[in-house]
Amino acid sequence: MALTPDITIPEITKLEIQPSRTYALDIDTGQIKGMVDGRQAIEQFIRKAIFTPRFVHEIYTDAYGCEVPSMIGKGFSNEFLRSEVKRMLTEALIYDSRINKVYNFDIKPNGDEIFVSFTVDTVAGVIEIDGVNL
């Protein structure tokens, strides 16, 4: 009769979402005003990521920021702008592990401005971004 070795099975633990506590940034003044976590931190990330130009600031990796401002006022057709803005906004956000999906875009080019609204599914629930002027 063959001997069977004892097999130790490690205990399986639940995956826990790590806190996303960060500094609260007043986007209008650029001042730090306390701390935010959870949904507020994700909302702040979304707004900061879409307003930060990609490839400009050395402090950020190439994955951070958005290229939409480089498209504005260059004479592209509205159809092309709608397509590219959708792609660029999605790319600016989806790499963050707290973001599950970016969809339901409403993109309105208007000369040197682009107004956008969209929906973001996150680990903290659905976040609606309405009427942002890029």
Rank of each mutant, 00 (worst) to 15 (best):
A2M: 08
L3T: 14
P5H: 07
D6W: 06
T8M: 01
I9A: 08
I9E: 02
P10D: 15
E11S: 04
E11M: 03
I12G: 12
I12V: 15
I12Y: 14
T13F: 11
K14Q: 13
K14N: 11
E16R: 12
E16P: 02
S20L: 09
R21N: 09
R21K: 12
Y23H: 03
Y23R: 08
A24E: 10
L25Q: 05
D26Y: 05
I27V: 13
I27P: 04
I27H: 13
D28F: 12
G30N: 07
I32Y: 13
K33N: 13
M35R: 02
M35N: 01
M35E: 15
G38E: 08
R39T: 10
I42V: 15
E43W: 03
Q44L: 12
R47D: 01
F51I: 12
T52G: 06
P53W: 00
P53H: 00
P53L: 00
R54N: 13
R54Q: 14
R54K: 14
F55M: 02
F55L: 04
V56Q: 07
H57P: 00
H57L: 13
T61H: 03
D62W: 06
D62H: 12
Y64L: 01
G65T: 04
G65H: 02
C66S: 05
C66N: 11
C66G: 00
P69C: 09
S70R: 11
I72C: 08
G75C: 11
F76T: 02
S77L: 07
S77E: 08
N78S: 14
N78W: 07
E79F: 01
E79A: 13
F80N: 07
L81M: 15
L81V: 09
L81H: 10
R82H: 07
R82I: 09
S83R: 14
E84F: 07
E84R: 15
E84M: 15
V85R: 13
V85S: 10
V85F: 10
V85T: 12
V85K: 13
R87V: 13
R87Q: 14
M88V: 02
L89P: 01
T90Q: 07
E91R: 08
A92I: 01
L93N: 05
I94S: 11
I94N: 09
Y95C: 03
D96R: 10
D96I: 09
R98V: 05
R98Y: 11
R98F: 09
I99S: 11
N100R: 15
K101P: 02
K101A: 10
V102N: 00
Y103P: 02
Y103Q: 14
Y103V: 11
N104Q: 12
N104Y: 03
F105I: 04
D106G: 05
I107A: 09
I107P: 10
G111H: 04
D112A: 08
E113D: 12
I114T: 02
I114A: 01
F115Q: 07
S117Q: 07
S117I: 02
T119M: 08
T119F: 01
V120Q: 03
V120D: 01
D121T: 05
T122Y: 04
V123K: 08
A124Q: 15
V126L: 09
I127C: 14
I129H: 02
D130G: 00
D130L: 10
D130I: 10
G131P: 00
V132L: 09
V132C: 03
V132Q: 14
